[in-house]
Design a protein around this nucleic acid. Structure first.
Lengths: 137, 137
DNA sequence: GTATATGCAAACCGTTTGCATGGCT
DNA sequence: AGCCATGCAAACGGTTTGCATATAC
């Protein structure tokens, strides 16, 4: 399957208009069928490098649109910037402290045997698990 | 034990000079012996309300100094602001999505039976668990 | 006396927004 | 045609910093 085909399909999934910029970004994000973690800046850089013509503001707006459409998730690990993940099921993350990078950890390897009870009147909306890594040695 | 005594002791623990402003903030943070979660703004507001004379910049600098001294921890849950916790052992948090508040969850109630293996060449520096809550009903 | 903390205002940086233009359906 | 996306630059908000002054040791 071609990258832009995957991107197109992905936009359709989210009910989003397939504009040129969205298709570019979508194909950079899901074109190879793999999951990807980006920041607005890193995706913007990737788009420029790929020769795509997009503005940074549009990258921000588009990432937000993708999140609202439910085809991406925003992840908060590092107060200073937002990360966006193309994998949308609930799963733990590795955060590489040395190079500020985010990657997926396998959900099968995480087993939470017991979770604190949510206080009265509340329910759990999500459980975020971030495993912070540092270089060994 | 008096609040400012607790604050004084706490600063000593961190090897920090007991200036008037640091004592004020310390006593607001640990004066009652309880754990506390603050943002720079919320602590600043509390200081003003208590009649203490501190600048916002000093609150920021002081919180950072407390973290570097190892007597507080910074917690990232909400991209838009930093939270600071006087409890420094590894423990899970509740994040109240409806009012952007952070509180401790009991570590005894959290049981992680299995954790993903850290990738080669890395080790786990910390595992952050944030249980996001929303109002029920 | 010397190193360090404070206060203020200005810089900073990631992100959002207002508005005019251009593109999708 | 009408609505919505885009681009730019300017605004924004939380945080940091430079520099002069004040304070702890």
């Amino acid at each position: 399957m071609l990258a832009h085909e995957r991107g197109q399909r992905w936009l359709t999934e989210g009910g989003l208009r397939p504009t040129r910029q969205r298709l570019s970004l979508a194909s950079l994000l899901v074109g190879d069928g793999l999951n990807r973690h980006v920041t607005a800046e890193s995706l913007y850089a990737a788009a420029l490098e790929a020769g795509e013509k997009v503005s940074l503001a549009t990258v921000y707006n588009t990432l937000r649109a993708f999140c609202e459409a439910g085809i991406m998730h925003e992840i908060t690990v590092d107060g200073t910037r937002s990360y966006f993940d193309t994998r949308i099921d609930d799963h733990p993350h590795f955060f590489w402290e040395d190079d500020n990078r985010l990657s997926d950890a396998s959900p099968e390897e995480l087993e939470i045997a017991h979770l604190p009870e949510p206080p009265a009147g509340t329910e759990i909306s999500r459980v975020d698990v971030v495993i912070r890594l540092r270089r060994k040695g």
